[in-house]
Every structure is written in C-alpha cells, then in structure tokens.
C-alpha cells in the first residue's frame, strides 16, 4: 500500500510540475505564435488581394479545416474576397489561397500555401512562371486545363510532366470558387 501511494504521488507530482512549467512557458510563447500566424495570414491576404494592411481590414466569413473565406474591406466597401482551399495533390494535400474581385469576375492572384509534390515536377506549381498566369482568370468555377499557352480567361495551362498536380490546383480553385459564391449568396439574402 505504501508503495502504491508513493508511485501515485511521485507520478502526479512530476505531472503537475510539468503542467505548471508548460503552462507558464506557454504564456510567453502563445502570444508570439498568435502574432506569427496573424502576420502570415495578412501577408498572404496582401499578396493575393492587394490589401493594404494599413488602411484595409479583413473579416472572416467562414473558417473550416479545408476552406476559409475572408472579406477584404476598404473603408465600408468590399474590396475583394480571399479564399483558402485544400485538396488532394499527387502525393499529399495541396493548400492554396487566391483573391477574387468582389463580383467574382476574375481571380486577382494565387499562392500555394502548402504542398508536398515531386520536386522538379509537381512542385513547380509554386513557381512564379506558373502562378502569374492565374491573374485575370475567370472566377466562375469552371476553368479548364490546357496543354498550350493560352490567353483565354477560362483556360489554364498545365505544367508539362505534372498534369496531376496542375489538375489538382485547378480542381481546388474551381471547387473553392463555387463554395465561396454559394456562401456569399446565402449571406446576402
């Protein structure tokens, strides 16, 4: 009995000590972690919507695990929407963010947040050469993948040799656009 009590006591003592230290430690780090996340989010929003962090504000419309929607507000006017979407790539999840004009006429810019595609092939979706073509594409949820360079707003050129990754990005954008549109429509009613 004495042994048992000692076991329980020792284990509990160290656990409580550990909990206390971690809780205390957390008060230092938590604030910074939050700041880091916020800074990262604002940087992303800024790069895909052209939001000016000094004058513009943003509002979270929806925040799910695989989908986030932000409204970028300049003064009282909606300046743009930013959409975070997620989907399966060639090897693992691809997570991306893109900005759209408030009337969903076109995509402002697109940025990849997370990917684990094959280096040199699928991972080229992070390259500037591929990403810049997204500017001005139609945000109608029915973009098409093509093999050759295109100027059409409803067509996106695939990376040669990385058809699957290119398709995945396109699907995520199409799906997320449709979802964002539906949400905004519902909110507007």
């Amino acid at each position: 009995m004495k042994d048992s009590l000692r076991m329980i006591a020792v284990l509990t003592f160290f656990a409580v000590l550990s909990g206390g230290i971690l809780g205390w430690f957390n008060t230092f780090t938590e604030k910074r972690v939050k700041e880091n996340k916020l800074r990262e989010l604002i940087a992303s929003l800024q790069s895909v919507t052209g939001m000016d962090p000094n004058t513009d504000t943003y509002k979270i419309v929806r925040k799910d695990k695989d989908f986030e929607l932000y409204r970028i507000i300049s003064g009282t006017e909606t300046k743009a929407y930013a959409v975070v979407g997620e989907g399966n790539g060639y090897q693992d999840k691809i997570r991306l963010i893109f900005g759209v004009k408030p009337d969903f006429s076109e995509i402002i810019a697109l940025k990849i947040l997370e990917e684990k595609e094959t280096p040199g092939l699928g991972a080229r979706i992070e390259e500037e050469g591929y990403l810049k073509q997204w500017k001005g594409k139609a945000a109608n949820g029915s973009l098409k993948l093509v093999k050759t360079p295109t100027e059409n707003p409803y067509e996106v050129q695939a990376i040669s040799g990385a058809t699957i990754s290119s398709t995945a990005v396109l699907d995520i954008v199409n799906k997320s656009v449709a979802r964002a549109k539906k949400l905004i429509k519902e909110a507007g009613k």
Binding site: S18, I21, L22, F25, N26, F28, T29, E30, R32, V33, N36
Partner: peptide, 14 residues
Amino acid sequence: ATFVTMADRYLAAY
C-alpha cells in the same frame, strides 16, 4: 515530453 513541448513552442514562437 515537458522538454519537447518547450522546444516545440519555442521554435513555433521564435
């Protein structure tokens, strides 16, 4: 685990 969590939080913060 206490030390690991501290290391992890520290890296995440700084």
